[in-house]
Design a protein around this nucleic acid. Structure first.
Lengths: 133, 133
DNA sequence: CCGTATCCACACCGATACTG
DNA sequence: CAGTATCGGTGTGGATACGG
């Protein structure tokens, strides 16, 4: 759904019938690996393409490219290329717009962290207790 | 991806190898219609099933059921049934856990609202300007 | 009124191979 | 190093019909 939700939101903006502003924000980072990419670019600074592939070993080559392109289309990151002896290095950086999204990601981090610790303390009410615990 | 990201996150919690706490939070509300459902339950109070279908006319019957079930599994909402003459009325309510998610949704609303107004003011840099503007 | 079940078109994403 | 193109198994979500 990831990309679908994003395209749908973006299309509906152009048509002027976006259901809720929240949907646009969700569309910005709901793609696979996007929150991780945004986090690393904010927390660690700029990254090259191959560095990102090493940071996200479970992400395929193709997906990283795709997610980076979408983040760039949405104005959240920029890309800069540099050539050294026919070898191209690409650097990705957060834009101010991308940085403005970080507080939301930070709140999501805090909520998730608290939720996990609560679940650890209270296994009886674990939402997946009916599955495989 | 919606449900996939959620299942993946939940599975990885049980295995103890969740990549980042943010992923769990995202999994809570990244499903189709979930942020809308959560918003209405918080802002307007409890709702019956058929009221939700009227609030979300573009959502299919099936999806609303599915999303409500997932929200319930995750402990964000509760459901209560009442019978009047063989007619069953179901009421959905936010749990405290669900309410604790609202500040994040509020920030997402504000970000999206500001983003839209910025785009309206500066059409030249509209990210979709190469599509159909 | 409140769901569940089935079918089916379509979107996703990993693997692989190829360009510059 | 930094991508693009294609193929194929899998998951998603709408429509429809049916059961409680």
């Amino acid at each position: 759904m990831t990309d679908f939700i994003r395209q749908d939101s973006l299309n509906r903006i152009t048509n002027g019938d976006l259901g809720c502003f929240k949907e646009l924000t969700l569309a910005m980072f709901s793609g696979k690996w996007k929150i991780n990419i945004l986090y690393h670019l904010d927390h660690d600074g700029d990254y090259h393409f191959n560095e990102l592939t090493r940071l996200l070993p479970r992400a395929s080559h193709k997906m990283i490219t795709q997610q980076l392109n979408e983040l760039r289309e949405d104005g959240l990151i920029t890309k800069h290329t540099d050539k050294h002896h026919s070898i191209t290095y690409t650097t990705y950086s957060l834009t101010p717009l991308g940085k403005s999204l970080i507080p939301i990601l930070d709140m999501m981090y805090d909520w998730g962290k608290k939720r996990i610790s609560d679940l650890k303390l209270d296994t009886a009410s674990f939402p997946l207790s009916n599955k495989n615990l």
